[in-house]
Simulated scan of single mutants.
Amino acid sequence: MLRPIQIIASSRAEDNSGIVEIKADVGTIDPPKMKRLRIPDLLKGLAILFMIQVHIMELFIDYAGRESIVGKVSLFLGGPFTAMVFMIVMGYFVAKSQKTTMRTLLRGVKIFVLGFFLNIGLNFHLLLKIKYAGWPYNPLEYIFGVDILYLAGLSIILLSLLKLIKKYQVIVSLLLLLSVLLLSGPVNEMLTFPERNYITPFIGGNYSWSYFPLFPWLAYPLAGYFFFFAEDSIKQFVSRKKEWAISVFVLLVAAVICFSKMGFNISVDLPAYYHHGFKYGFWALGLLIIWTTIFYLLVKKFRLSRIEQFLAWMGKNITLLYVVQWLIIGNIATAIYQTQALNRFPLWFFGILFVSLILSWLLAKTKIKLA
Results as ranks from 00 to 15, higher is better:
214 L>P: 11
247 S>M: 11
148 I>S: 09
187 V>Q: 07
187 V>L: 06
255 A>V: 04
175 L>I: 09
211 Y>T: 00
247 S>A: 14
181 L>A: 13
222 L>H: 03
165 I>P: 00
188 N>V: 08
258 C>E: 09
177 L>G: 04
157 I>D: 01
248 V>D: 00
174 L>M: 11
190 M>H: 05
147 D>M: 00
168 Y>P: 00
228 F>L: 14
203 I>S: 05
221 P>V: 04
208 S>L: 13
232 D>H: 14
189 E>A: 11
233 S>N: 10
229 F>W: 15
176 L>N: 03
164 L>Q: 15
172 V>H: 02
160 S>D: 09
172 V>M: 09
176 L>G: 01
190 M>A: 15
220 Y>K: 04
209 W>M: 11
203 I>Q: 04
192 T>I: 01
165 I>K: 10
186 P>L: 00
249 F>G: 05
234 I>G: 02
153 G>K: 06
247 S>H: 02
152 A>W: 00
258 C>Y: 09
162 L>P: 06
166 K>L: 14
201 P>F: 03
182 L>T: 08
238 V>Q: 08
147 D>P: 04
170 V>K: 15
239 S>W: 02
245 A>Y: 02
227 F>I: 14
220 Y>V: 05
201 P>K: 06
254 A>L: 15
185 G>P: 01
235 K>L: 15
195 E>C: 02
161 L>M: 07
221 P>S: 08
210 S>W: 01
189 E>S: 12
231 E>A: 12
213 P>K: 04
147 D>I: 00
165 I>T: 09
158 L>V: 15
225 Y>D: 10
255 A>C: 06
209 W>D: 05
230 A>V: 00
189 E>Y: 08
227 F>G: 03
258 C>S: 10
249 F>C: 04
178 L>Q: 07
257 I>E: 10
254 A>D: 07
168 Y>G: 07
199 I>E: 06
253 V>S: 10
202 F>P: 13
242 K>Q: 15
234 I>K: 03
162 L>N: 02
150 Y>Q: 13
258 C>G: 03
163 K>G: 06
249 F>E: 04
207 Y>G: 02
217 W>L: 04
240 R>V: 00
198 Y>M: 03
158 L>R: 01
256 V>P: 10
202 F>W: 11
249 F>V: 03
157 I>Q: 01
195 E>V: 07
147 D>F: 01
220 Y>L: 14
256 V>H: 10
241 K>M: 08
149 L>F: 15
220 Y>P: 04
219 A>G: 03
236 Q>G: 02
193 F>T: 08
191 L>F: 14
227 F>Y: 15
208 S>C: 07
174 L>Q: 03
234 I>C: 05
217 W>M: 03
176 L>V: 05
190 M>E: 02
250 V>N: 06
253 V>N: 03
172 V>Y: 11
148 I>D: 09
244 W>Q: 13
254 A>S: 14
229 F>G: 08
215 F>V: 01
181 L>Y: 13
231 E>N: 11
201 P>D: 12
185 G>T: 14
202 F>S: 13
180 V>F: 03
226 F>H: 14
252 L>S: 13
192 T>V: 02
253 V>M: 12
149 L>P: 01
162 L>S: 01
221 P>C: 09
211 Y>N: 01
237 F>V: 03
193 F>P: 01
